[in-house]
Design a protein around this nucleic acid. Structure first.
Lengths: 152, 152
DNA sequence: TTATATGCAAATCCTTTGCCGTCGA
DNA sequence: TCGACGGCAAAGGATTTGCATATAA
C-alpha cells in the first residue's frame, strides 16, 4: 500500500524507482517539516546506499510536480511538507523550534483583500508567526519586537 | 549631517569607520530592499576599494544591533531594510519582482490573536504576499494556487 | 596606543550538476 | 531495449572567517 506521496507520484506519471519510493515513504510518514539532510538521514536508515544528491534531486522533482511544498523558516535550509494537505500557515516556537500548523479563514480572506486593494491578484503567500509559550508568567505586556528572522 | 542609520550606529556605540559610514549612507538613501551585493555595488561607487566581506560583516553587525531588518523574499539572497521604520509587511509583484510595503492593523491584530489562541505570545512574524497586477483582464476568477516560493 | 576593522583569499554551507554506469517501464 | 535515474565528486552561489595590516577613539 503506497503512501499518499507515492500515490501522487504515480498519478503524475513519475518513474518510481526504489529511491523515490523510499523518499516518498519518508515524506508520507513525516509529521514534521524535515530539511533535505533530515530526509536523507531517514532514508539512509532504510537504504544506506542512497545518495544525498538523489534526495535533493527528488525533492526538487516532487516540488516541481506540486507534490511537495518548499518551506523556509530561516536558517538557510529549505524544509518540506506534503502539498496535498489543506492550506495552513505555521507558527514557530522560538524557544524550542517546534512548528505548529494552523488555519484561519479570516486571515486568508484578509490577505486576499489586502492584495486586491493594492491592485493585485494574490497568487501565493508566505506567513510565519514566531512566538514563545504563554503559560507561566512571561512578560506582562506586549513587545512589538522587530522581526526575528533566525530560528536555528 | 549623518543619516538615520549612522545616527543609530552612533547611539549604539558602534565604531564609525569610513566603510561603515558609507554603508550606513547607502542604506539610509535606499528606498528599496537591496541585497548584500547590491549594497556592495552602491558603496563601491563611492569607495571602489571597499570589500564585499566588509559589506557582509557590516550588514550582520547592523542587523544584530537592531538597526537593520533582514528580509527573505526567496531567491537565496538576504535583503535588508532599516528597522527603524514603522512596522509593515511586503507584497511582492511576482511578475516584476517589485516590492510594495503595506500596513494593516487588522492583520497585526489577527496574528496576535491567532498566536495567543495557540498558547503563544507573538514575538515576531514574517509575511509576504505574492501577487500579479490586476488591471487588464487576467484570469476571470480566482486561482487558489499552491504557494509559489520563487520570486527570482 | 591598542583594541577593533578591513582586505584578501580561502573556507563553509547548502544545493546543483556533469559524467557514466544502472535500472524501470 | 533505452531513455530516465542514481552515485560520486566536483562545481556553484551566497556568506563567513583566518590572518596580517590599517585605523578609530
Amino acid at each position: 500500500m503506497p503512501g499518499q506521496i507515492e500515490r501522487l507520484c504515480i498519478e503524475r506519471g513519475l518513474r518510481m524507482t526504489g529511491q523515490r519510493k523510499l523518499i516518498a515513504r519518508v515524506l508520507s510518514e513525516a509529521n514534521d517539516h524535515p530539511d533535505a539532510e533530515e530526509v536523507y538521514w531517514r532514508a539512509s536508515k532504510l537504504d544506506p546506499k542512497i545518495s544525498i544528491a538523489t534526495v535533493y534531486r527528488t525533492l526538487r522533482i516532487f516540488e516541481n510536480s506540486g507534490i511537495l511544498q518548499r518551506l523556509d523558516f530561516g536558517g538557510g535550509r529549505a524544509r518540506f511538507e506534503g502539498a496535498e494537505s489543506d492550506h495552513h500557515d505555521h507558527l514557530i516556537d522560538s524557544s524550542s523550534g517546534k512548528v505548529i500548523e494552523f488555519q484561519n479563514a479570516r486571515l486568508e480572506e484578509l490577505q486576499e483583500r489586502i492584495a486586491h486593494d493594492l491592485g493585485y491578484r494574490l497568487v501565493g503567500h508566505r506567513m510565519e508567526l514566531y512566538g514563545v509559550p504563554l503559560q507561566q508568567d512571561g512578560a506582562p505586556k506586549d513587545t512589538d519586537s522587530g522581526g526575528d528572522d533566525s530560528a536555528s
